[in-house]
Design a protein around this nucleic acid. Structure first.
Lengths: 159, 159
DNA sequence: AATATATACAGAATAATATTCTTTTAATAT
DNA sequence: ATATTAAAAGAATATTATTCTGTATATATT
């Protein structure tokens, strides 16, 4: 068969490690750090992008700077037609919703939402969520303080 | 007093919008897109970094490519000395733990964890979490499928 | 109002990088 | 053995980043 094949070597891992730390590290610097030619690194990076190992490069913006002070997680119980994720896709369309996960157990979703404040959250629930008929109930968890928030993956080492 | 002052204008927002889409967009391209000189854009980007509006640039790596197929959220009930977040800091040190949020309600944390598989999760709970004495109980939610996972913020428009 | 002071930006010059192409080497297949 | 492929070095050129200078505009000071 052959679904998706990655097959990364140690050099790829090192590139990923560097990119994960600072996605704007330039080619020449990566090359220097790994003791290789820039052209070789360029090829590898392009290949990593093509193979969808690197999905995208994003800037992490301070939510406070955009006055988005409230982070919440909401469990959503919904009656999706079996096997579909209609509700999930609708939820994903809401800009304030950063994550939508289909979770095991009581046929539901867990979503992560960022709003200006409590009023913004109420708004979102009333308007955006309110429009989705299939939603049966919700349970909201408010975040008081975030201690860590990264999406860095653990990259294997050679041993 | 004066905590942190941001104060961003429309041009800053546009830069953030571009950077949020692709953090490797180069200076010259941003300048072209906004119809400004590269030197002006460079100044602004540096200022955004200094002011901690842009916190970092990261590459989003495909978890599957690193064989990290299991995503879980774990609610952790813990008895932290009041006002401290000792447990939170200990949790944050675990590499597989991508997020640690101090949540309202039953003095607990919500963490987001990525492991290879169920065995990896069990391992982590037994070893890493097991070592933290203050943890009273945990409740784990397994993600079956992720519909959306971004950290893009909603950037204000001028109207 | 007149004069400083600071800020944002353009434009030009130069340093550094990206990108492309060619060649070599090594690994793998035939 | 002999192709074939993949990875990478190295060189040449196209693009960018970066620094510096000058100018306009706003903001403050007296």
């Amino acid at each position: 068969m052959g679904k998706l094949e990655f097959s990364l070597d140690q050099i790829d891992y090192q590139i990923l490690r560097i990119m994960q730390e600072n996605a704007r590290t330039n080619n020449a610097d990566i090359a220097r750090e790994l003791g290789m030619a820039p052209s070789a690194i360029l090829e590898r990076v392009k290949k990593l992008e093509q193979k969808q190992v690197i999905l995208q490069y994003n800037a992490k913006i301070n939510p406070d700077a955009l006055d988005q002070k409230l982070l919440s997680f909401i469990f959503i119980k919904a009656q999706d037609p079996i096997g579909t994720q209609k509700v999930g896709l609708l939820l994903a369309k809401i800009p304030e919703v950063q994550e939508v996960h289909d979770i095991a157990g009581d046929d539901g979703y867990l979503i992560k939402v960022r709003t200006n404040d409590a009023a913004g959250l109420v708004d979102l629930m009333r308007n955006a969520l309110g429009k989705i008929q299939e939603i049966i109930s919700t349970r909201t968890t408010i975040v008081l303080e975030t201690v860590k928030e990264e999406q860095k993956l653990v990259i294997p080492t050679e041993d």
